[in-house]
Design a protein around this nucleic acid. Sequence first.
DNA 1: CTTGACTCTAACCTTACGTCATACCCTATA
DNA 2: TATAGGGTATGACGTAAGGTTAGAGTCAAG
Lengths: 255, 255
Amino acid sequence: MDNYSVKKLAKLAGVSVRTLHLYDKMGLLKPSVRTEARYRLYGEKELLRLQQILFYRELDFPLKDICTVLDDPAFDIVQALEGHKTALAAKKERINTLIGTIDKTLVTLKNNAMLQVEDLYEGIPREKMDAYREEAMSKWGKDTILEVEDTLRSFSKQEMDSLKQQLNDLTARLVTLIPKGPEHEDVQQCIEQRYGIILRLTGGKIALGKLEYFRKLGELYVADNRYTPVNGMPSMELAVFIKDATEYYVKRKQG
Amino acid sequence: MDNYSVKKLAKLAGVSVRTLHLYDKMGLLKPSVRTEARYRLYGEKELLRLQQILFYRELDFPLKDICTVLDDPAFDIVQALEGHKTALAAKKERINTLIGTIDKTLVTLKNNAMLQVEDLYEGIPREKMDAYREEAMSKWGKDTILEVEDTLRSFSKQEMDSLKQQLNDLTARLVTLIPKGPEHEDVQQCIEQRYGIILRLTGGKIALGKLEYFRKLGELYVADNRYTPVNGMPSMELAVFIKDATEYYVKRKQG
DNA sequence: CTTGACTCTAACCTTACGTCATACCCTATA
DNA sequence: TATAGGGTATGACGTAAGGTTAGAGTCAAG
């Protein structure tokens, strides 16, 4: 009997000594014996009671309620548990709401940072956006576009700026490389880098074969000169150049 | 400028004056001006900041984190929100576990109180239970039995004891009434009370017509004398008596 | 007899306020 | 002008469930 010192009981039950002191003072778990030096000693009965206490504690019951549950024999545990369950369900609902709010906020934040997704289209006025999106959707499929836009939205502003800058640099470099012809090694290197960046921007989620998709993107450069910015100015020459270089690139990769 | 006193701002934002004092002391929201009497005065800028504070507060952000979010321009809000969302999701998962534990505990508690559902069968040894249940299921349908058992399990120990006691009393009374014959008014009253109790015990969920079900129960009393306990002793005489009385009762009600 | 491990009590710290208590300030009215 | 009433400031205490010292006493082994 009375085998356990505070530390032994604490280790056994996985709580701190402080916790046992506290439970003692608040009457939740009294030691069965105090030595003359006022050391606390607990027996098996106390160990059992501690187990019960910890069970209810794990269910987030306040210690005072645990006291009531364990000490009042007329207490309806079933009702207490059911009430507690209701409270937990309410908490859970609140957390769901919070998570929803955070999601909405994240979308808003990223949209605000990312509304420059328009910048990808380089200067197309906002009122033409809808027409453009419909066009793109009918060309590549609505789902494809939506997936790409989702992916774009997931980038942080810094990442986005970096990728945009890289694309701009490549475009500028390609302008200087026009004289060398679309099949020149330097041009092909630029095209390959463009391919990598665009893959990242579209998240590799494109349903079409990736190279095929990339080729279509090359075509688009010719079909619609809105897509070929050179310092903000459209350039048919650059568009054709990129298209030719892309087709050669794809052909070499597929061959 | 500096339009709002503590109380005005508090009312406007739906917080307490104490909260504003606190936010001031901890540097989260300083008044733009202090009068010479040290009264706090806030301007529009502070109102706006308070709105932001409250937004994050509603998301259960600790105030210190809100401080960081609002004051450190290099702080990555998106990352903070995503981290917070993860934490909330973990909390939610924990609550799910807790609810599951409570459910299991409730079932255990009710089973422990109710495993005496067997007592309904009055002394049938546990190893014969399964055979009996199959028999009952083939007689009345598996679903019927499962529904009835569910209903039985939903009773608290006190309710159950009370109903059991009432049934025992009625049985004892019927024994004394055997000489008067199954159609005697007193006997019929007992049968009617039995009917009511059994209806409660089975929750009225029985698929069969209730009276019809009750009649079958009467038949069963004869078909299997395990169902007719008299102080623990089976009594064929009582079983027949109850069957006759029940059939008369049903006939009268249906007629 | 000393050392190291153990124990006691007490007190302060945490979050985000609520609730006094005491004292000061301001303004409108008699 | 005195005062009543409401607004305000500061400080302190309390909350839940302990964590973290601090100072002092206790126990068993070498």
